[in-house]
Amino acid sequence: MSSVVNHKNVERIENKISDCLNRAERYFKIGLQRPSFNFKQRGRTAGTAYLQRNEMRFNTYMLQQDPDKFIDHVVPHELAHIVVYQVFGSKVRPHGKEWIAVMEHLFDVEASRTHDFDVPKPRNLFLYQCACQVHEFTAHRHGRAVKGTQYVCRYCRKNLNFLKKK
């Protein structure tokens, strides 16, 4: 576990997982495999469920902003993906009707695909220019552009060309 995550929040996450899994097991009348979790998630994503690994990754930057909201919404969101995969298999849509039903009817949480936590500011920015303005690219997007991906401004419809690293 990450040293920036306090023991109380780890325990609360474990309890939330247990509570939600118990509800799902009672409803579906089957045993479900308890997923592991860690705090390796980075960037703009609050959490990710790795279905085949039965693993959930959480973003500590967002957990620290509002632990109650994070535990009440993000943990069930990712766990619902795991439950749906274990119950229905891989032939269902990630945020489809099965996932929505698990979120809203079993976990009693609004089925939202997005979060409103603040996202960390990117460290390495790269400037690209079109005919009307300068755009900031993250290192990831810049790497894709270097490998040949063409980006076009949504306003002037001109190609974006690399200027310099910010």
Rank of each mutant, 00 (worst) to 15 (best):
H142I: 04
F88K: 13
R154Q: 11
V87Q: 07
F39D: 06
Q129E: 14
L32W: 00
H140P: 03
Y155L: 13
D19L: 12
F39E: 08
I30A: 05
E78N: 02
T138S: 14
D72Q: 14
P120D: 03
F117H: 02
I13W: 05
M56L: 10
L32N: 00
R93Y: 09
S2L: 13
V84F: 01
F126P: 11
I71W: 04
V134W: 06
D108Q: 13
Y151D: 12
K8G: 07
F39V: 02
R113Q: 15
V92K: 07
K165H: 08
L79C: 03
M62H: 02
V74H: 01
A101N: 15
K40S: 15
S90I: 04
E25G: 02
P120E: 07
S112T: 13
F70H: 05
K8N: 12
S112V: 14
V5R: 04
Y85R: 08
H105W: 08
T138K: 03
F70M: 03
C153P: 05
T48S: 13
N6F: 02
V109A: 08
R123K: 12
L79T: 01
I30V: 14
T149S: 07
V134F: 06
C130V: 03
N22K: 08
H95C: 09
P67I: 02
R34Y: 05
H77K: 04
T45V: 12
S3Y: 14
L21D: 05
A131M: 09
K164M: 09
G143Q: 06
K97T: 13
N124P: 06
I30Q: 14
F137H: 07
K8D: 15
N124F: 11
L163G: 07
Y61Q: 05
R12H: 10
Y50S: 09
F28K: 04
S3R: 13
T149H: 09
D118F: 12
Q33G: 01
Q41C: 10
A46R: 00
E11W: 08
K121Q: 14
P122M: 04
S18E: 15
V152M: 07
K158H: 11
T114A: 12
D72Y: 11
R123S: 12
N22C: 03
M56F: 00
Q64I: 10
L160E: 10
A101G: 11
T149M: 13
L163Y: 04
N9L: 12
N38H: 04
A24I: 06
S112E: 15
A46Q: 03
Y50Q: 05
C153K: 03
I100S: 09
M62E: 10
V10G: 12
I17D: 08
F70D: 10
E55S: 06
S90Q: 09
F37T: 03
L32M: 01
P35R: 00
H73I: 11
E78L: 03
A145S: 10
W99E: 09
D116E: 15
F28V: 06
N124K: 12
L79H: 01
N38S: 10
K8C: 09
A131D: 15
N54K: 03
C156K: 03
I30E: 12
A139Q: 14
N161T: 14
H95W: 04
L79I: 01
Q41H: 00
